[in-house]
């Protein structure tokens, strides 16, 4: 039985950071310029003590509350996050209990970022198609705000907190949204360009390192998230076109046979450039970062949910999804959107 995406639900924390607030803190930018460059108007920010697993729990609860699926029907839980509750135990184990999933269910954390939904989807597909479970709950969740230095205006402008719950199940006789061949890629030579250096074991005891600036003037703190924007942009220029071609080749498709392209929603500037480089018509390209910013591993399911709610994905559409980022890591697939999503009530 092929794996199919049945439903997606999202959850975001209450607090909002808008462009006027950012411009007040960083006066060399205007709210208009921020939105023009990034495509982002609002970001949600988790409260003190509110963790990724809390957001994931709420997204999953919304999915269950809709009646699409009951907790006891889940055979496997995958949590994609780089902000766990603890080093141990696995946050997915804590969520199994909080969500009331069966004790017979598998549960695992996947430490992956902007490519994470694709990697989780690939694992869910493998689990389902090998007969290990009939329903997989794929949760993606991040509280990036807790990683950022309060003066890192570049990261504060782009990233937001949020979670998505994706229900993946074995397709039955009725139409589904079939997950195609998975294509992956990794290049650890880029590890230093998206990194939180301190806090784990490589730099144990080094917390409290004074921040500096990198060669481009970006704030650089080993205790916080660091992004080398120009290097990351170059990575996407080198990698995304070839990754798209690899996904198309795996499905024996040409780009003009794809109806919708959804990339990891990094920021509008980057995606506009990639869209033009790949000559993808704007009407076939999803941009959905305005209200929540870059929510890392949850951007693709959030964009798919918004597009479904807005009626932008017709039944039978071929949807090319591609995630890329920290690692470096990337991955993609084609979804055959035969059924549409079962939409939870908002």
């Amino acid at each position: 039985m092929p794996a199919s995406i049945r439903a997606i639900a999202t959850h975001f924390p209450e607090a909002v950071l808008d462009n006027a607030q950012l411009a007040a803190r960083f006066p060399d930018w205007t709210p208009e310029k921020i939105e023009q460059k990034t495509g982002i108007a609002f970001r949600r920010v988790a409260a003190e003590g509110e963790t990724s697993s809390d957001l994931a729990c709420q997204a999953a609860a919304r999915l269950f509350a809709s009646g699409i699926c009951r907790p006891e029907e889940i055979g496997y839980l995958i949590l994609v996050s780089q902000s766990p509750d603890h080093f141990m135990p696995t946050s997915a184990c804590i969520l199994q209990h909080r969500l009331g999933l069966p004790t017979s269910a598998g549960a695992v954390d996947v430490n992956q970022g902007c490519s994470g939904w694709i990697y989780g989807l690939g694992l869910a597909k493998a689990i389902i198609e090998s007969g290990q479970a009939a329903r997989v709950l794929l949760l993606t969740a991040e509280t990036f705000s807790k990683f950022m230095h309060p003066e890192d205006k570049g990261s504060l402008t782009i990233f937001g907190d949020g979670a998505a719950a994706t229900l993946v199940e074995a397709a039955g006789d009725s139409p589904g949204n079939i997950v195609g061949q998975m294509v992956y890629g990794t290049d650890g030579s880029g590890a230093d360009n998206l990194i939180i250096r301190n806090g784990a074991f490589r730099n144990r005891g080094l917390a409290g390192t004074a921040p500096g600036t990198d060669k481009f003037g970006n704030l650089c703190s080993a205790d916080h998230f660091y992004m080398n924007g120009p290097e990351v942009f170059n990575f996407t220029l080198r990698t995304v076109p070839s990754a798209v071609n690899a996904v198309l080749a795996a499905h024996a498709l040409e780009l003009d046979q794809v109806d919708i392209v959804v990339f990891h929603q990094a920021n509008k500037y980057m995606l506009d450039h990639l869209r033009q480089k790949l000559r993808i018509p704007s009407e076939r390209f999803l941009l959905a970062m305005r209200d929540h910013g870059n929510i890392t591993s949850s951007t693709i399911p959030n964009a798919l949910l918004i597009a479904e709610q807005e009626g932008r994905i017709r039944r039978g559409a071929r949807v090319l999804a591609l995630g890329f980022g920290v690692g470096y890591s990337w991955g993609g697939t084609v979804l055959n959107w035969e059924a549409g999503l079962s939409l939870p009530k908002s």
């Binding site: 060669k215 481009f216 924007g229 290097e231 220029l237 480089k277």
Partner: peptide, 27 residues
Amino acid sequence: WDSMAVLNFISLLDSRCAIIVAPDAIA
């Protein structure tokens, strides 16, 4: 002249000259 300007210049050379220039070369 900041990292956003560097991104703009990388974008310019990629789209108009088909050159992906290394950020270190710009720095």
